[in-house]
Simulated assay, not measured.
Amino acid sequence: MRGPSLSAALIALALLVVPSFARADGSAQLSVDQVGIDQRLGNRLPLDASLRTTGGDTVTLRSVFRERPVVLILAYSKCPTLCNLVLREMVQATHGTEARPGRDYDLATISIDPDETLEIAKGTEDRLMSSAGLPASSGAWRYFLAEREAIDKVASAIGFRFAFDPQTRSWAHPAAAFVLTADGRLSSVLLGLRHDPAEIDAAVREAAQGRIAEPPKFSAATICFALEPSGKHAGAVRWGLRGLGIAVLGGLAALVLGVRGWRRTP
């Protein structure tokens, strides 16, 4: 067993050992099955889906496309964990790409929170444009709001599985950027928080030519879960989770060392 095969086996083992989360009060945390990325490469997005600009205008998803690829991120402004990191890392990546936002491709963020206000959304859009060094008039990185039905349609088309946790009042979601062709098809998916500028350049070039990437043989998405134990057993829960994590990591380390030792055995 080598390279990716060994990694895949180790991650699969970890998922079997830790299939879900639990809260201190005994109520169920969202299952990891509810959140993730499904490969929907080549799917066409619902271009008639209704969106709202930060200026309050109602537009369709079709208006996002300006005869060049679009890098789409689903996030929301009040996300307590991943969203700000995803957006910040994308800002940093745009400074290093040969392809330029507003010229070779556009960026768009659609909030997955249907209750997000225009004021908050406008503040996020302004910060993104400013941090990326993009003129406000360029429209190179726009931020949109939408009703839940439209959000679900877009998310389903690109394979973005997310769920609302009523206990923590937050959205659990994966971290990814979706590269779309100029006619609104999903060309490739960039998983994780950080993307190399060269990776973005390559994905944009492929999308500009209308090409659809091959699905990866193995992939794992970074997932945002809000886990906030409370109550008199909160401390025990935290230490229990830490202990479980240490046990899983220890088991994986032992397995790796065992496999390596087996390889060296004549």
Rank of each mutant, 00 (worst) to 15 (best):
G3I: 11
S7C: 09
S7E: 02
L10R: 06
A14Q: 00
L16P: 06
L16V: 05
V18W: 08
V18M: 05
P19V: 01
A22I: 08
R23G: 05
D25V: 06
G26R: 07
A28L: 11
L30Y: 05
D33E: 12
D33G: 07
V35C: 03
G36E: 03
I37D: 02
D38C: 01
D38Y: 04
N43D: 10
N43H: 14
R44Y: 08
R44P: 01
P46I: 09
T53A: 06
D57N: 14
T58K: 11
V59N: 07
V59L: 06
T60M: 06
S63I: 02
V70D: 00
V70E: 00
V71S: 01
A75F: 12
K78I: 09
K78M: 13
C79I: 03
T81W: 07
L82N: 14
C83A: 13
R88T: 15
E89N: 15
M90K: 09
M90A: 11
Q92C: 10
A93Y: 03
G96Y: 09
A99N: 12
P101K: 02
G102S: 08
R103D: 04
D104L: 09
D106H: 12
T109K: 01
I110C: 01
S111I: 01
S111G: 00
S111R: 01
D113G: 12
D113E: 14
E116R: 13
L118F: 10
E119C: 06
E119F: 07
E125P: 12
S131W: 04
L134I: 08
P135A: 05
S137N: 13
S137G: 06
W141K: 00
R142A: 07
R142Y: 02
L145E: 00
R148A: 05
D152G: 07
A155H: 01
S156E: 02
S156N: 06
A157S: 12
I158Y: 07
I158N: 10
F160E: 03
A163M: 00
P166I: 04
R169C: 06
S170I: 04
A175I: 02
A177Y: 02
A182H: 12
A182W: 04
S188A: 04
S188F: 00
V189A: 12
L191Q: 14
G192Y: 06
G192K: 14
L193V: 08
R194M: 05
H195A: 09
H195W: 14
D196P: 11
D196K: 15
A198T: 14
E199L: 12
I200K: 15
A203H: 03
V204I: 15
E206V: 03
E206P: 01
A207Q: 00
G210N: 07
G210H: 06
R211I: 11
P215Q: 06
P215S: 13
P216K: 15
F218E: 04
A220F: 13
A220D: 00
A220Y: 05
C224D: 15
A226N: 14
L227N: 13
L227A: 11
E228L: 09
H233R: 08
H233I: 05
A234K: 11
A234V: 04
A236W: 07
R238P: 02
R238K: 15
G240E: 04
L241Y: 08
G245F: 09
V248A: 09
L249W: 10
G250F: 11
A253Y: 11
L255D: 01
L257M: 13
G258V: 10
G258Q: 08
G261M: 13
R263L: 09
R263Q: 13
R264Q: 09
R264N: 08
